[in-house]
């Protein structure tokens, strides 16, 4: 189950980077340590057969590069515009994951994206992290889900 969820998130992220940013050179690996100087963490809550959240960790440089690529405009810092754009991308990836999981009889819904800080203390049935590396920088997904009782 953990592997399946992990792979579904990785595939959805790769697909969105490919379609929206025209980036196809993408690799993934489990993220044991994901460190960067400055990052924006966006949480997408999950409800239904799976419950919990997925936190998308966007380094500032990756966030700026993503928005530059989408808009063709210059951005020098992470502001409300950039945060909102990458939050929507996290929302889109998560929505695509749920569509993919619905084919495996898992019915879930997502909550609107919120800026967050990761709580390392909570325990989950499914707890995994993946780092996705691209030519414009990496992002990390912290997947923390419980199966509904």
């Amino acid at each position: 189950m953990v592997d399946k969820i992990y792979r579904t998130f990785v595939d959805a992220t790769q697909n969105v980077f490919n379609l929206m940013l025209n980036i196809s050179d993408i690799s993934d690996h489990p993220a044991e340590n994901f460190n960067c100087d400055s990052e924006i963490d966006i949480a997408i809550g999950v409800i239904g057969d799976l419950q919990g959240e997925v936190v998308y960790r966007f380094p500032a440089s990756t966030s700026i590069n993503m928005v530059k690529l989408m808009s063709g405009m210059q951005f020098d810092e992470v502001d409300a515009f950039v945060t909102s754009a990458i939050s929507e991308i996290a929302n889109i990836i998560s929505g695509n994951v749920l569509t993919a999981l619905s084919g495996s009889d898992l019915t879930c819904d997502i909550l609107p994206p919120v800026q967050t800080k990761i709580d390392e203390q909570k325990e989950y049935d499914i707890k995994t992290s993946c780092c996705i590396s691209t030519t414009i920088g990496a992002i990390c997904l912290e997947i923390r889900l419980n199966k509904a009782a």
Binding site: V16, S84, A85, S87
Partner: peptide, 13 residues
């Protein structure tokens, strides 16, 4: 600014 960021990502997707 928040609206602009979301509109950009939504439209492209």
């Amino acid at each position: 600014q928040q609206f602009g960021g979301r509109l950009l990502a939504w439209l492209i997707n």
